[in-house]
Structures are given as structure tokens and as C-alpha cells.
Design a protein around this nucleic acid. Structure first.
Length: 154
DNA sequence: GCCAACGTTGGC
DNA sequence: GCCAACGTTGGC
């Protein structure tokens, strides 16, 4: 099964790339001690959740900073496939449960790729990040993945 | 099952 | 801080 690629976004004020790295260094979850480091919890959007259900261990994920920075700052990988989000208090009342995955930092980008650069690149005009800005977890095609790595000078 | 109202996200 | 886009909720 070929590796797939994804993009997740997070507000660095709430939980940024550095926080992800720190959690793995600490070997624990900052906000929910005892839970896995890098637990991607709190997604309450069905489209985003269904993407998380498709994520497989080893898939690579761009980590994007929204609100502040507005750029892809690093690459993470899926280190734990989807499970019911332990922070979803109403999971029992719903037929479709929200889920989370675990993300593990692989490396930060020496040259982050900004939303502005992405929008300026016609190759990336179809990206979900551009077309549907509010989606917090979205698929990235192989071509888009390569193009962005190229822009990052990797 | 439709659709208006409301809430949230996120770029600017 | 504003506003557009979109998702969710709830009345009918």
C-alpha cells in the first residue's frame, strides 16, 4: 500500500509544531497526561474525521500553522491509526464517533512554505488548503506533496 | 427531508 | 476586528 499524504492545520497559539516536538520528547501528552504524545484530538468535523479514518501508519503529513505564521512548518508521520477521541464527551450519544490519530514529528522545514507561496503557484491551485480553507485535515496528492517539498528546497 | 438561522473557522 | 465560507442544528 503506497504511502498517502495529508495536511493538518493547527493554531500555534493553541498547539504548534514545537508543542508536538515537545510532547514526543517528554513521551507524554501535554493536555491529557497518560494519553499518547501527538494525539490529534478535538477534530469535530465529519469531513476531517473521515480523512483521519483513512490515515495509515507511516503516511506523511504536512503540519500547517493557521492564524499565525500561515505556513507549512514541518513534516509529521502517522504513528497511530484512528481511534475514538477520548476528549469527545458525547461520543456515546452519537452514532458516528469523532476520532483522532497520533502524529509524530519527522522533521521541520528549514524553509517553511507559506500560504501566499502556495496560492501563487498554479500547480497548487486545486489544493484543498486553498479551495476549502476551513478544513482542518485534508488529503494532499503526490504531485502537490512533491511540489511543496521542492518549494521548501528539500 | 428541506432550509433558514446560527456558530465557527481562518484569511485578510 | 471584520467578513466570507461552510458546517451544524432545529423547526416545520
Amino acid at each position: 500500500m503506497a504511502k498517502r499524504h495529508w495536511l493538518v492545520k493547527s493554531e500555534p497559539d493553541a498547539y504548534g509544531w514545537d508543542d508536538l516536538v515537545a510532547e514526543w520528547e517528554a513521551g507524554d501528552n501535554r493536555d491529557y497526561p497518560g494519553q499518547n504524545p501527538g494525539m490529534w484530538d478535538g477534530v469535530r468535523n465529519y469531513a476531517a474525521a473521515s480523512h483521519m479514518r483513512e490515515m495509515k501508519n507511516g503516511d506523511e503529513v504536512f503540519f500547517y500553522h493557521s492564524q499565525q505564521g500561515l505556513e507549512i512548518v514541518g513534516i509529521a508521520e502517522v504513528a497511530g491509526e484512528h481511534y475514538v477521541d477520548p476528549t469527545d464527551k458525547k461520543a456515546g450519544e452519537r452514532k458516528t464517533k469523532f476520532v483522532c490519530v497520533d502524529l509524530k514529528p519527522v522533521r521541520s522545514l528549514a524553509n517553511p512554505v507559506s500560504l501566499k507561496q502556495i496560492k501563487a503557484n498554479p500547480e497548487l491551485a486545486e489544493m484543498k488548503l486553498v479551495r476549502q480553507g476551513r478544513l482542518s485535515v485534508s488529503p494532499v496528492t503526490d504531485a502537490e506533496w512533491k511540489e511543496i517539498l521542492k518549494m521548501a528546497g528539500e
